[in-house]
Nucleic acid binder design. Structure first.
Length: 816
RNA sequence: GGGCGCAUAGCUCAGUUGGCUAGAGCGCAUGCUUCACACGCAUGAGGUCACAGGUUCAAGUCCUGUUGCGCCCACCA
């Protein structure tokens, strides 16, 4: 392989084929090595692979490779999150259908087909970038095992009284016509009008109320005023006529009213916002539902009935204007909550939903967050901040089709809940099972299946359980991924969803954390430091193009140039730099092969020179630094240190200093040559391992060509991470090295000033050097002469010079 | 309004627990086909570390405040 020019296409294919053939990255279930398990994010099969995926997955993957080389038995599964609304939306878009307008089983089938197609593309991408997952552990959140474990999780929570069914005003999306969770909300700036409306009092007089949502007037059930409001005394208890409606409402006091906002008097509708929901519950108000599930006005809206809310708003404003109730209008910027998937404004609809209790365990959840080590540290604070701000229990039911069914039936007589026995799981279709029970509450025998499906997060929050094969019949043979898992990699945007929900579930099931460490990535930013968003379509590159154009290793190099947790500006330069590193390694390896072809490392008897020891010491330093960095997921820093060692120390200095010895095949030079070859062998062997987690393809080729034959490992990914122990005599040798470099640099500078080719030999160079390095020179003089192409090097100590200083006195070109 | 982060060379970024003249890559300048590599090599220019205080023998690093930018949450009368 190590022939000709560096060709990433050939290298990538060759290495990936090798790993595939070998099963290099399979988890070893029989090994007694300690397990390092990674709770890989199952990406949503949403149809588009984006640059952010490559970014964060590569970062975690680098750690998997590192841990494997450190001797850990790495459990590195891969998964796909293909159930739920995202897949439904993708299917609807791709096939131009609407799930609720076609037979459910047909739609579900179409969803399965659609996700299968995209899954293949996903897997191909991950393989093409060298993800070292064990693909035999692949799971998908809609496969039977995942459904079974998800349903088991639900039943476990239900049995522990952590789940409840409740009818109450719930966050509702009118486009997909389902309940949604707090974590799925986004805020959106909206230009709208603030309308001052006149409400006439029943007993005469009037008040002014400001609103952005006049279409909710039919749902107005009360008017609130702050108890300290100057008008409170005269208004409290009075009734006001709701404009254009035939009902009136009472004026009530509540200190949640802000006297500074609007007119200081506010109407309460069921339901315009979260406060309305609170007031409705607190003051036991009537329920007047003005908006239906599909976002259209209900019959009580009179002339506006059947219109969508925004149409109704325009219509009723016109009527309010005509009737003289509209006193003033003002353009304002408003913030509204929208559903992240559709961008539609959230409504509050009283519906019956399943909830998982989270509000009652906020403190415990904070505590669990503190038990997990977050990298970087401040991501733990973001988790905490989210938990502390929770307002709703976790609504897990969705009025949708393609998802994990609730394994429950309701009694037709009294709505009592029947839960599927364990042996029924997974309940894929309720019709596959017949409930023969008699209802313990009412004696009824007719049972109605729950038609809702679970929120997709209700399943993906069980990924540690899926990996562990919790409660599965074959768990014993697979019980190799212990809980808690070692590490959770993910990006910061899903701390409030995936990380949070997973912690909730783990607590409910096991009263423990799901993983010991969390590695949280930042985002890729588009040029101009702007957020990449699907709607803007401003992704700077397509992942497949990146790999095709730059190769897998250069693409990885780009992703690994970031600092964990920081957002990272997309930068083409990184790819070029990655490519350069690969080319450099390729060429250094070719040089090495020329000198190591017939080399037997184990037969070396020659003593190393000080620079041979020094370069080994510098390698050991680099191993230590890189190890410390990778242990805390600072891949970028590790990469920098390794690269610097490879490029500056090894290529620019060491190789130049040993070339003379390498090319000297005279009998006199045999020992010197052998020591140089041993040095070259050791250090290249070491650095290629250090680089392997970053650029696994090119390093695999080098490893196979030069080092595999003498190594136990079949692939570099299984080879041992180098030792950090410095060789004997390191300290002295390093000082000798520094002295050599000081002289070399002086000569190089002179050459550059004289505009002389570095290749042009010099017959004699005379330098004065500081006393502290003077006595070191004899030990490295030959090496310096070799690298500087000097036949003679005269060195004179000069106590007038500063520590480490070197002055060039004379340099002579050979006489022609 | 609450939480968090960022501010270092023209650009993109490193700078662990405070410790010598603040680093890298790109870009720029000068030179070099040198027997692995011009996808290279050598040399060089370039920074009041956002601002103002404070702690310390010593601050880019710690503390307080200010300004600007970004993210999350709340606000949705």
């Amino acid at each position: 392989m190590l022939d000709g020019k560096y060709d990433f296409k050939a290298i990538d294919t060759w290495a990936q084929d090798l790993w595939e053939r070998q099963g290099t990255h399979r988890f070893d279930g029989d090994s007694d090595k300690p397990v390092y398990s990674i709770d890989t994010p199952p990406p949503t099969v949403s149809g588009s692979l984006h640059i952010g995926h490559v970014f964060s997955y590569t970062q975690a993957e680098c750690i998997a490779r590192y841990q494997r080389m450190r001797g850990m038995n790495v459990f590195y599964p891969f998964g796909f999150d293909d159930n739920g609304l995202p897949t439904e939306r993708l299917t609807e878009k791709d096939h131009g259908v609407l799930g609720r307008e076609m037979p459910r089983d047909e739609f579900v089938k179409l969803c399965r087909e659609t996700s299968a197609k995209y899954k293949q593309e996903f897997e191909a991408l991950w393989r093409s970038i060298g993800i070292s997952a064990d693909w035999t552990l692949l799971y998908s959140t809609i496969d039977e095992r995942a459904i079974r474990i998800s349903q088991r999780g639900f039943l476990d929570a239900l049995a522990k009284d952590e789940v409840y069914l409740h009818t109450s005003p719930t966050l509702w999306d009118t486009e997909t016509q389902t309940a949604v969770a707090q974590a799925e909300l986004e805020s959106k700036d909206k230009r709208t009008k603030m309308n001052d409306l006149r409400f006439d009092l029943v007993d005469g007089g009037d008040i002014t109320i400001a609103t952005t949502r006049p279409e909710l007037l039919p749902a107005c059930v009360a008017i609130f005023i702050h108890p300290d409001h100057p008008q409170a005394g005269e208004l409290l208890g009075k009734r006001a006529k709701v404009p254009l409606q035939d009902h009136d409402v009472e004026i009530l006091a509540d200190d949640k009213v802000d006297p500074e906002k609007g007119t200081g008097i506010v109407m309460c509708c069921t339901f315009g916002d979260k406060t309305d929901v609170e007031w409705y519950q607190k003051h036991k108000l009537d329920l007047r539902q003005a908006i239906g599930r599909e976002g259209k006005m209900a019959d009580i809206a009179g002339p506006e009935a059947g219109l969508y809310a925004n149409q109704a708003r325009r219509a009723i404003l016109e009527r309010l204007h005509e009737s003289g109730h509209l006193l003033k209008q003002e353009d304002i910027e408003n913030v509204v909550n929208v559903f992240e998937k559709t961008g539609r404004e959230i409504e509050f609809l009283p519906t019956r939903q399943w909830f998982i209790k989270v509000l009652d365990k906020k403190e415990k959840l904070v505590e669990l967050g503190e038990k997990i080590r977050w990298y970087p540290d401040h991501m733990g604070k973001r988790y905490r901040n989210w938990v502390e701000g929770l307002d709703w229990d976790w609504c897990i039911s969705r009025q949708r089709f393609f998802g994990v069914p609730f394994p429950v039936w309701f009694c037709e007589g009294c709505d009592h809940v029947f839960t599927a026995p364990e042996e029924w799981l997974p309940v894929l279709e309720h019709s596959n099972h017949e409930v023969k029970e008699t209802c313990s509450e009412c004696g009824g025998t007719e049972w109605r299946p729950e038609t809702d499906v679970m929120d997709t997060w209700a399943t993906s929050s069980e990924t540690p359980e899926i990996n562990h094969r919790w409660g599965e019949a074959d768990a014993e043979e697979h019980r190799r991924c212990p809980l808690p898992m070692s590490m959770r990699p993910q990006a910061h945007d899903i701390i409030r969803t995936w990380a949070f929900y997973t912690i909730v579930k783990s607590w409910i099931h096991f009263q423990d954390v799901p993983w010991r460490e969390a590695m949280v990535s930042g985002h890729v930013q588009a040029p101009g430091k702007v957020k990449i968003s699907k709607s803007k379509g401003n992704a700077p590159a397509d992942p497949r193009d990146m790999i095709t154009e730059h190769g897998a290793d250069a693409t990885r190099y780009w992703a690994l140039s970031a600092t964990l947790g920081n957002d990272y500006l997309y930068n083409e330069e990184d790819f070029k730099q990655g490519r350069r590193l690969c080319v450099k390694l390729w060429n250094a390896a070719r040089l090495a092969r020329g000198h190591l072809a017939d080399f037997d490392r184990s037969a070396v008897t020659a003593d190393p020179r000080p620079i041979d020891t020094a370069i080994r010491a510098r390698l050991a330093d680099t191993v230590r630094i890189a190890g410390t960095d990778l242990d805390r997921f600072e891949f970028g820093h590790a990469k920098q240190a390794i690269e610097r060692f490879f490029w500056n120390d090894l290529c620019d200095n060491y190789l130049e200093m040993i070339k003379n010895r390498l090319y000297d095949d005279s009998p006199d030079g045999a020992d010197a040559r052998e020591a140089a070859r041993a040095g070259l062998y050791d250090v290249l062997n070491g650095v290629v391992r250090l680089l392997a987690p970053f650029v696994p393809h090119v390093t695999e080729v080098v490893f196979q060509d030069l080092f595999a034959a003498a190594d136990d490992a079949d692939a570099i990914g299984l080879a041992a991470w180098p030792a950090a122990e410095p060789p004997p005599g390191s300290e002295e040798a390093q000082h000798d090295w520094d002295a050599a470099i000081a002289v070399l640099t002086t000569v190089r500078r002179w050459r550059s000033e004289e505009k002389l080719s570095p290749g042009k030999p010099l017959s004699r160079v005379a330098v004065r050097i500081a006393p502290d390095i003077a006595d070191r020179l004899p030990r490295v003089q030959d090496d310096v002469r070799a690298a500087g192409r000097m036949e003679l090097l005269d060195v004179a100590p000069d106590s007038a010079l500063e520590k480490g200083d070197v002055q060039l006195d004379a340099a002579e070109l050979p006489s022609a």
